[in-house]
Simulated scan of single mutants.
Amino acid sequence: MTVGRLRLIIFDVDGTLVDSQSDILAAMGQAFAQERLPVPDKASVLGIVGLSLPEALLRLAPQSADDARARMVAGYKDAYMSLRAKAGVAQSSPFYPGARDMLHRLQAVPELLLGVATGKSRRGLDKLIEGHALEGMFVTRQVSDHHPSKPHPSMIEAALAETGVAPEDAVMVGDTVFDMEMAKAADIRMIAVSWGYHPPEALAGADASIDRFDDLPDRLNAMWGTRI
């Protein structure tokens, strides 16, 4: 790797680094139940993970009035916070195998910068980072509070601006079509993970894919001509 040339790896969170599906499904079930609406099936709920909550509820409950969806957003947040507080972050959002070790391995490379782009709120991401002792891991944190929902490229554009990294030196690592479309809209490359919330065949348009975190350095080396 050319000394001093920075590269940026932007990670999605839920479905990529951690598996929060148990609490996501439970919280969404409570949000729908409070409005006496049929609870969407598992595939439908996991299919919207990564979107901002208002956009997610618009897709899951398109016939509901705006005020009802607003209550569901609030109900989801309250339920999710309660579930996480009861179980703790490590149990509520456990790392996928190899995720923590890979983050530390990549962070140890001076020319690599790590970031996240997530549909979580700032509060939710901060709690997850605190609970997993990841303070200082990510130099840029893009959350739903400050951006349009994925797949709008705003999160990636902000991450590039904050770090000063050129699009050709950045890559998105994620598990959903929203991540892939966001990366393409921002003109950066995309590495799809096979273990997340969208089926691998839906991510066939990604630049590369991995079945385990140990595969990630090889994919990055192939993209950038580096040795990680």
Rank of each mutant, 00 (worst) to 15 (best):
T2M: 09
L8I: 06
I24W: 10
L25T: 10
A27C: 09
M28L: 13
A31G: 05
L37Y: 02
A43F: 01
V49C: 05
S52W: 01
S52N: 03
R59E: 11
L60F: 02
A61S: 13
A61T: 06
D67A: 12
R71L: 00
R71M: 00
R71K: 04
A74L: 13
G75V: 10
M81N: 10
S82I: 03
R100L: 15
M102Q: 13
L103V: 09
L106D: 05
Q107E: 13
Q107G: 13
A108Q: 11
A108M: 01
V109Q: 13
V116P: 00
S121H: 01
L134C: 05
F138P: 11
R141C: 15
H146W: 15
P148S: 07
P153V: 12
M155D: 08
I156S: 08
I156M: 10
E157W: 11
A159Y: 01
L160A: 02
G164H: 01
F178H: 14
D179Q: 01
E181H: 10
E181V: 14
K184Q: 14
A185P: 04
I191E: 06
W195S: 09
G196A: 04
P200Y: 03
G205F: 00
D211S: 15
D214H: 03
D215R: 11
D215M: 15
D218Y: 04
